[in-house]
Amino acid sequence: MASVFPRFLAALFALAALAISPAFADGVFPQRPIKLVVPWGAGGGTDAIARTLGLLIERDLGKPVNVMNITGGSGVMGHQTVAMAAPDGYTIGLITAEITMMHHQGLTKLSGDSYTTLGLVNIDPAAVQVRADSPYKTIQDLVAAIKANPGKLKASGTARGGSWHLSLYGMLKAMGVDPLTVPWVPSMSNNAALLDLVAGGVDIVAGSHPEARALIDAGKVRSLAIMDDEPSKLFPKVPTLKSATGTHWESGVFRGIAAPKGLPKAVEERLAAAVKTAYESPEFKQFMDSRGFGRVWRDPKAFADHMAKVDAESGALMKSTGLVK
């Protein structure tokens, strides 16, 4: 009996040695399955976008693309996993707007610069929502009420310092209102904030149209304006901030595909091409339209620029409103 164990160990080591030995063939990329890391949970909007893209990228590359949800640390863990992975193209990730904010809050050292960008596929602009039976029919009504009673109207939509928080504060600032006159009520999700809005707990919710869609359709919530230069596809009748007030302020969340820094040029180009093909496919368009997500394309360079711009804006806003030191 006792002789079995050493033999088992020997076999194990032989197998391990085989595994460590240099690659048998350096063929065309990809040789094996690719991991697509999602920093958020299965079943959410980000996950659904990643899974759709994953299928389409898989079709183009001819190797399985396995979606992997790494949800720890409020998005930090997933973003970190992508940035720290071996730069061989076998680990890519769907990175989200939080990457431009977390480092200002001291949660991570990573920023948009920590990645090789492959393509941005989605932007969902922020919008301002109120209860359907509230007296505020337009964004001007609302801003007038804020100015008349500083501190009385409460807003919500995400965690303290989250992207919708910054969107709203940025809008107020751009309109010449002190953002701190609208106290922010933190919420765990936009859904929870909308529920609180309907229950009469808060007065304003900042968030995207796809998130508010069900309650707007149900006649419980009214959207006053969207922080973008184009009206949204879901609710084209909701005015843009610029058309309603003349103030120019664009803000929203984005999602894009990225890989670790230092990717071989050939691999980078192959992956970027696969992301673009996936983005342009009719399946992706159909999926994004059915969920109401904004289908926006930025090539790798423009994606990096977009992150840098949002990063600078977020940093300045967080400092000026005392959200970070």
Binding site: L15, A16, A19, I20, A23, Q31, R32, P33, K35, N66, M68
Partner: peptide, 11 residues
């Protein structure tokens, strides 16, 4: 996604 570790290339 159970880790492959040393066996990554056989994934």
């Amino acid at each position: 996604a159970l880790p492959w570790g040393l066996f990554e290339r056989f994934a």
